[in-house]
Design a protein around this nucleic acid. Structure first.
Length: 564
RNA sequence: GCGCCCGUAGCUCAGUUGGAUAGAGCGCGUGCCUCCGGAGCACGAGGUCACAGGUUCGAAUCCUGUCGGGCGCACCA
């Protein structure tokens, strides 16, 4: 909906030519000299009409009624593009709309009531959150926000794998370190956990329970160590996410799937499909019936389920809770599970593409050109907290979001720590803060700048026109980002907007052209430009809100190092 | 070996779903600059879009193959 009147006028013209209504795709041309709005409809039609696209374009152009479309000119260019120039009124009325809608500008409410679940992070409670979780937290949260902005009712969910063998390994690891505190000699088992945090866990275990587990190796003792360890790690993870500004509506425990009998009932339901068989002592599901490459074991020879079975039970419960749309955000190292989970669900009658997946690639952290590999506490990779404590949560979130999910990314610490607007995140925040600075210099509160309070057709300078057109794109950028589930599109847009805004702002520098400053003497022009400044500030703030990033009224050096 | 993702400027990456002369930031070069808040502004150079075919008015984008990088291919999660 870049510009509705143009679409209507075009379709009217096309109808006159004896054709059915078509979908009009209006875009803003990359090159501003091509006008405000462009349309490639003639090129699309040329194949169907078997006529040169240029001729079709000429014919459409001749039939479009300019005044009703709100344009001052229409021209045919290149192979048959239709380029439009908006009338001053049509071009600038957008600003009144932005100011009037304020926090709601960019929101779409057409889909009221539709529910979607976004499941993300879902780290095992076996250690601190690392970089991959960080990328996933930023990404998942932004995708959830984008869906909210495009009219969905969103449920953010975190799934804790608190029941598998990896938890047993955690317990064994903690026990070994615990015993060592009392002179024990044990070794961390194969596949166990080694980081400093295991020692810390053992120490606080000893603090709380004393030496009672040294001799007590009963089931109950193991259970106590398990509960203590899982709880501690969960608390730490929750703290890390909370301080990162990521919040969930629900934490779903794998263990609950066993307690409530969902695993069992899922197995029974699968048996009824006739796709279950026994082989070599294990119970299999014939997932090759669907999209999978080979059949999968559900219950092992030893009688224990693989994680595959609870996974199906879990997703089945997503469906029965009413989520007909579910997006799972996961690391691409899990992509092997996609086909088998979907196959299992199809066996139970769920639709083929359920659930949707957003798979993201790995992150490497680089400082002074070489990779940062180790974390003091975790022993393996840098933790999320270490990262955002050093560079700040805003920068961390922005950097994780500014690359598309399915590309590997390099997190450059030197670039992240740059406090100038060479750092794209600060560039955007600066542009936002600068508008506040203008308002306070004018001694006016932003909220006092009202829609309809000025004659916007006075905004005739080319810098102003460019900035207005840039702001016009915001809603369609959100729509595209939400549809593709790619927040980086919003980052690109905001950075570009900040760039256009900077050029506009600097053009009015007293040493260059004082007539282009916002705060000129002419009160009419000043009023119009204040509305433009306010509109810019609103769009930047709304965009940053979607990314989970603050929009400061003034920039402070401390922000760069204030992660806590 | 099979499957998924990626390959675009020196570096990090976009590329509006097949459209106009392939873009941005960093870095590099050249000129300005004491200001409505900088760790400033403007301009410029820099490309065989990994390679080879194909599809059509038109391909970085779609199809096939090759090469290179990452990840996965458990009765682990």
């Amino acid at each position: 909906m870049l510009h509705e009147p143009i679409g209507i006028a075009l379709n009217a013209a096309i109808k006159e030519m004896g054709l059915d209504e078509v979908e009009i795709n209006l875009e803003r041309p990359r090159d501003p000299s091509h006008g405000d709005v462009t349309c490639n409809i003639a090129l699309t039609l040329s194949g169907r009409l078997d006529k040169p696209s240029r001729d079709i374009a000429e014919e459409i152009a001749a039939r479009v009624k300019k005044d009703r479309a709100g344009i001052t000119s229409i021209e045919v260019a290149g192979p048959g593009f239709l380029n439009f120039r908006l009338s001053a009124v049509m071009a600038t009325s957008l600003l009144d709309e932005i100011v009037a809608r304020n926090e709601a500008f960019g929101r779409e409410n057409t889909r009221e009531g539709s529910q979607v679940m976004v499941e993300f992070v879902s780290a095992n409670p076996t250690g601190p959150l690392h970089l991959g979780h960080g990328r996933q937290a930023a990404l998942g949260d932004a995708i959830a926000s984008l869906l909210e902005w495009t009219g969905w009712q969103v449920h953010r969910e975190f799934y804790y794998n608190d029941a598998g063998t990896q938890i047993d390994k955690l317990v064994e690891s903690v026990r070994v370190r615990y015993l060592a505190l009392f002179g024990g000699q044990g070794e961390i088992p194969e596949g166990g956990y080694h980081g400093q945090y295991i020692n810390e866990l053992a120490e606080s275990l000893a603090e709380e329970f004393g030496d009672q587990f040294v001799i007590d190796e009963s089931e109950k003792a193991t259970e106590q160590i398990r509960n203590f360890s899982v709880r501690s790690i969960r608390e730490e993870q929750d703290r890390d996410l909370n301080d990162f500004g990521v919040h969930f509506d629900e934490h779903y425990l794998e263990s609950s799937l066993h307690h409530t009998g969902r695993v069992k009932s899922t197995l029974e339901a699968l048996r009824e499909t006739g796709l279950v068989y026994e082989r070599a002592g294990a119970t299999w599901l014939k997932t090759t019936e669907f999209d999978d490459q080979k059949d999968r074991v559900m219950v092992r020879k030893n009688g224990l389920p693989t994680y595959f079975l609870p996974d199906i039970a879990y997703h089945m419960h997503k469906w029965t809770r009413g989520y007909e749309r579910v997006i799972n955000v996961q690391g691409s190292d899990h992509h092997g599970t996609v086909d088998r989970v979907r196959s299992g669900l199809q066996a139970l009658g769920l639709p083929q593409g359920y659930p949707e997946y957003v798979l993201h690639q790995m992150v490497r952290v680089v400082r002074e050109g070489s990779e940062v590999k180790f974390s003091k506490r975790a022993g393996t990779t840098t933790t999320l907290r270490e990262l955002y404590t050093e560079v700040g949560t805003d920068v961390t979130r922005y950097f994780f979001q500014m690359r598309k999910p399915d590309a590997q990314m390099v997190f450059d610490l030197d670039a992240a720590l740059d406090y100038s607007d060479k750092n794209p995140m600060y560039k955007i925040q600066y542009a936002h803060a600068r508008m506040h600075s203008i308002f306070s210099k004018a001694q006016i509160m932003p909220e006092e700048i009202e829609a309809g309070s000025a004659d916007l057709s006075l905004l005739t300078d080319n810098h102003e026109r460019l900035l207005i057109n840039q702001l016009r794109d915001f809603p369609s950028v959100l729509a595209r980002a939400a549809e593709n589930r790619t927040p980086h599109i919003v980052c690109e847009y905001l950075e570009q907007t900040a760039g256009v805004a900077n050029t506009w702002y600097h053009a009015g520098n007293p040493s260059r052209n004082p007539n282009l400053a916002v705060l000129v003497d002419d009160s009419k022009i000043r009023g119009a430009r204040l509305i433009l400044a306010r509109s810019l500030q609103i769009v930047l703030r709304n965009g940053l809100a979607i990314l989970g990033i603050t929009a400061p009224k003034r920039m402070m050096q401390e922000i760069a190092n204030d992660g806590t």
